[in-house]
Nucleic acid binder design. Structure first.
Length: 344
DNA sequence: AAATGTTACAACCGCGTTCAA
DNA sequence: ATTGAACGCGGTTGTAACATT
């Protein structure tokens, strides 16, 4: 047995709102408010509309101080940062952008922003690939100049680096895969993994933001997002669950040693095999199109319709966050910062 | 100029949550 | 404690406008 309908579907009008309907609804709400009951409102004012439809029309279109279109670069940045951090919590994201509605932001993200971001990411990957290829070609030329006469001058198979070659390459030329690159990749794989100064921790700083009426989950996410936005440091979103994903890696140290890079790369390669949704982060790293190499689930960013934006960190963060909530003592004060305290 | 494809956005739908009776 | 109505949210759909062939 399904849920009872909120209104008589047969007698309500659907589709676009007419200017007359808008005027009726707007005038009434401006004079009397919603009366706290959207379901009853349309009958009260003689509109053949569902109460939910009236609410949506008011919130997304008729409400005062609503802005449509013309998103600024700053707003783009905020939306992207929050999406990467908390995912499609559009109402929370909208709360950070005065005059914007969740529906507007959602549409803007789905139609433009994710494509814009995808284009940017691809350009960066192409740049990295090009510079790596150039590096390899240079080394190859140097090697050939030292070639012993009589040996085979050229291999028939195309020269393309394997992981080992890249590891060796980066060990010799640290600028190719420096700490910034590692950090960048780890960010993509697991969210902002550590603090520049303090090491990894999750929800460590918990300020009392005003969130009346928000659920506890929303408060965590909101607070975390505000924290991230107000901080110049990378977002602190790493917890023990996330750390365990890279048990042998050095990413939780502010200064990663070069001798740790090789083992980390091997781990990352393994992660790419076991967790295809993270491949997009790795392909630029390895300088090859891993996403096109046949792994399931991430065979094409196009066919995925940008499902892989999540590879920039959201899934891991959310699972960590949920794990965090589950392990949270129910009777503990939510403001008790000791619960979220940094690892010693 | 017509057909077809793409984009942008308004609106709808269903489900989880909240809250009052 | 239970129940059901209403709310709020996020995913999805419908469609008009625009672009391309």
């Amino acid at each position: 047995m399904g849920r009872a309908p909120c209104c008589d579907k047969a007698s309500v009008k659907k589709g676009p709102w007419s200017p007359e309907e808008d005027a009726i609804l707007k005038t009434y709400i401006e004079q009397h408010g919603t009366g706290g009951n959207w379901i009853a409102l349309p009958q009260k004012i003689g509109l053949k509309r569902c109460g939910k439809s009236c609410r949506l029309r008011w919130l997304n279109y008729l409400r005062p101080n609503i802005r449509h279109g013309g998103f600024s670069e700053e707003e783009d940045d905020i939306i992207c940062s929050l999406y990467i951090s908390i995912g499609s919590r559009w109402s929370i994201i909208a709360a950070q952008l005065p005059g914007r509605t969740d529906n507007d932001i959602k549409n803007y993200w789905n139609t433009r922003l994710k494509k814009k971001l995808l284009g940017k990411q691809r350009r960066e990957q192409a740049d990295r690939r090009a510079s790596l290829k150039q590096e390899i070609m240079t080394k190859r030329e140097i090697n050939e100049s030292f070639m012993v006469p009589g040996t085979i001058p050229h291999q028939e198979s195309p020269y393309w680096p394997d992981v080992q070659a890249i590891v060796m390459n980066q060990n010799q030329d640290s600028h190719l895969m420096d700490q910034e690159s590692i950090r960048d990749l780890l960010d993509k794989l697991g969210g902002r993994l550590y603090d520049d100064n303090q090491g990894p921790y999750l929800f460590t700083k918990f300020n009392n933001y005003s969130l009346e009426g928000s659920s506890r989950q929303d408060q965590v996410l909101y607070t975390n997002s505000v924290d991230m936005l107000s901080s110049s440091a990378p977002m602190r979103s790493m917890d023990s669950t996330c750390c365990s994903q890279f048990p042998n890696s050095n990413h939780n140290r502010p200064n990663m040693s070069q001798d740790g890079l090789e083992s980390l790369l091997v781990e990352l390669g393994g992660l790419a095999c076991s967790n295809p949704q993270h491949v997009e982060g790795l392909e630029s790293f390895y300088g090859m199109d891993m996403a096109a190499s046949g792994s399931t689930g991430a065979s094409s960013a196009e066919s995925n319709s940008w499902g892989n934006i999540s590879s920039l960190g959201y899934p891991q963060l959310v699972s960590d966050y949920e794990t965090c909530l589950q392990s949270m003592p129910q009777d503990s004060s939510f403001e008790d910062s000791s619960f979220f305290g940094r690892p010693q």
